[in-house]
Design a protein around this nucleic acid. Structure first.
Lengths: 399, 399
DNA sequence: CTGAAAGCGCTAACAG
DNA sequence: CTGTTAGCGCTTTCAG
């Protein structure tokens, strides 16, 4: 009984004996239409259950009202939050999201970039796989702005919105040193990506400044297993293995800085099983402030990432580029890089005097290290307030 | 220098002095074209960097080659994995994903459904918000198949692909009873959705069968705070509060079954802080088998959800419906419900003899309760193999 | 084997 | 205020 075929402007026009054009304008709210006609059109439109055809509209308007979002792995909690933030901010501006997943494979990424071109999306937000920038370059040259998110991409001259991991690693390392650690280990994923590189850089820099030599074996790479366990988040199993190895020569003065909380967790367990106490025998700091971090025993000191802000900022930057791309201008100015600050959340796993070390270029960290330092095994596991960095979730009214 | 405007078939045709039509066929690989012409066309096409315009194509073909995916919250790890699985399976069949996020708000859902109609997506996969089915009904009546995922929706007669939570709750409860628990609590999110309802039903059923009366206060609802903390996953903070309350009258024979691992975690911490031992004083079972579950102290017994399979199955079901919707047929047969079995992962937090209770309608659970039972604080935290339910990423049969 | 013509659903000039 | 004419980029008849 219901119309198998969607109603179109023409159907309305026919029923009312008007021209398609008039109907179009009536519905679009343009002026050149009598109020009466407009009313009739409206009525008929929803009598027929008319729904405008976005594709047709986009085809003529030459804009897709869509932005492509390319993510390596939605199961990474940071990216999951990024997706939400981007979707929300995009919607506010009337854009839909075309989501593509690469699983950190360049082949997938190439396919995906191609598909995005075919769709003619208005802009692309991408967490790039490490190698290969040609496909993104092609896209950009064809007039589609591309903004990199979270990871930089060497061969690509594009905007980047990410997190200041160099700084977060510095702060975490300072904290560890301030707590008395001397034998530090950095546990990172074995991927050649900028976030890892930046953290390594920050880690080394601080140790250097303190005159501590860094042996190669202090920077440990955990093999990536995302590909195999498709759509599974990081698995602590490998960091657990690493933790067991470390446990042998660990003792007071040892500390581990992990590139993500899951790695910290694996290490945690290996240590406690081995009878080592955290933080007395070995201090641990993670990255990500995943929901479980505050509830471990002891609560995990970690770095809270401004996912929501990164997402919103990335969308904003992309929107600017899209606006600039419209005229003749060559896609706005030069590439801009925006690194948002992360927040060090000090909890019991890395106790010590707040990192107020001399060398710290640390820009007025919002005094994190207080409540939790008191109780090494706090009775109040941190109300874990929602991303404090996102109290600006876009126009709360937006019409 | 680079073409501001994308090359079109016409450009190729003009350059080669051919008709648009011929070029189209040449590129589409249709037969009625001489090999020579085809070659010339191909060459010119990529000289010009031609990329077919999907929108134009879709407009005439009347299919969008897109499926809409509506998710309440990507930060829920289960949904994150679902997204990956669906994207992957969709891509295999040539479909792109339009992702929409509702944050469990009906208003958002209505907007989103409308938008999906406008795009004319070929089908929709949705994790529905509890109330309001009219917008989905409209979509369906307009000829777009809708398959519900994970949650049922009362007013809607549509296919559903989900998890058998009734069974998972039953099995978990049986396990707890077998372990000697008598005072059981079920901690669930305060949402009126089928997964929760099913678990409550399973929980009650088993207790009933064992002649144990269930007081209302044994079924505890944790307030939802997703909306506020937009794009944040569950926060254990509320379940932690609940755990503290429970800790008062908990003791040997007490047990908690949690609707998700984060809740279990909150309870965990409240108990241990209160000096209660797990599982000796109180046993705990979660839901979800999130990556951290195996690494808690003690490792958390939980239910592993077949996210990848749910995703793949949902896509397959949708594809069937889409195929059926093409002819005159009324969208295939009646609504089908597919509930995939979850797997009970027994770890130290809920020790006891394997649940081999009489009333168990339990279809040969794959003998879970062995390796971990031995060591209440196992030295081998479960290699947490990737979703064992998805070693068959391809159509097990379906198509 | 190739071209001409029509049309998907909508919007943008331009006339009347 | 309203209708006519084009055309977005592509595919599909149907003739040649």
């Amino acid at each position: 009984m219901t119309p198998r075929r969607r109603a179109t402007l023409r159907d309305i026009a026919a029923a009312l004996d008007l021209s398609v054009n008039t109907v179009s304008r009536a519905l679009a709210g343009k002026d050149a239409v009598s109020e009466e006609t407009r009313e009739r059109v409206r009525r008929e439109a929803d009598r027929l259950g008319y729904v405008p055809n976005t594709m047709a509209r986009s085809l003529v308007l030459q804009n897709a009202m869509t932005i492509g979002l390319v993510i390596t792995n939605p199961s990474n909690p940071f990216y999951a939050r990024l997706i939400s933030a981007i979707e929300e901010r995009g919607r506010v501006h009337g854009y839909s999201l075309m989501l593509m997943v690469t699983e950190d494979s360049v082949d997938n990424e190439r396919r995906v970039a191609e598909e995005l071109m075919r769709w003619g999306v208005d802009g692309v937000l991408a967490v790039p796989v490490q190698h290969g920038a040609e496909h993104w370059e092609r896209l950009r040259k064809s007039g589609t702005p591309v903004v990199l998110v979270n990871r930089d991409l060497p061969g690509m001259e594009a905007d980047l919105v990410g997190v200041d991991y160099y700084d977060s690693a510095r702060r975490a390392t300072e904290l560890l040193l301030a707590g008395g650690a001397r034998e530090l280990y950095l546990v990172e994923e074995d991927l050649d990506i900028s976030p890892v590189a930046e953290r390594v850089r920050g880690f080394r820099a601080v140790l250097d400044e303190h005159g501590i030599a860094v042996r190669d074996d202090q920077i440990i790479k955990v093999p990536t297993r995302r590909r195999e366990s498709s759509s599974q988040p990081w698995d602590p199993v490998d960091s657990y293995a690493i933790g067991r190895r470390l446990a042998g020569h660990a003792g007071p003065g040892s500390a581990v800085l992990a590139g993500n909380d899951y790695f910290a967790l694996g290490v945690y367990r290996a240590f406690t099983e081995h009878g080592l106490r955290i933080p007395e025998d070995v201090a641990v700091v993670g990255h990500g402030d995943h929901p479980f971090a505050a509830y471990l025993a002891p609560p995990l000191t970690t770095v809270r990432l401004p996912a929501a802000r990164v997402g919103a900022t990335a969308v904003d930057r992309l929107l600017e580029r899209m606006a600039a791309a419209a005229p003749g201008e060559g896609l706005g100015g030069g590439a801009q890089t925006t690194l948002l600050p992360a927040e060090l959340i000090v909890r019991a796993s890395a106790t010590g005097r707040p990192a107020r070390s001399p060398a710290s270029s640390d820009p007025a960290s919002p005094d994190p290290a207080s409540p939790h330092l008191a109780s090494p095994d706090p009775a109040s596991p941190d109300p874990a307030s929602p991303d404090p960095a996102s109290p600006d979730p876009a126009p709360p009214e937006s019409s």
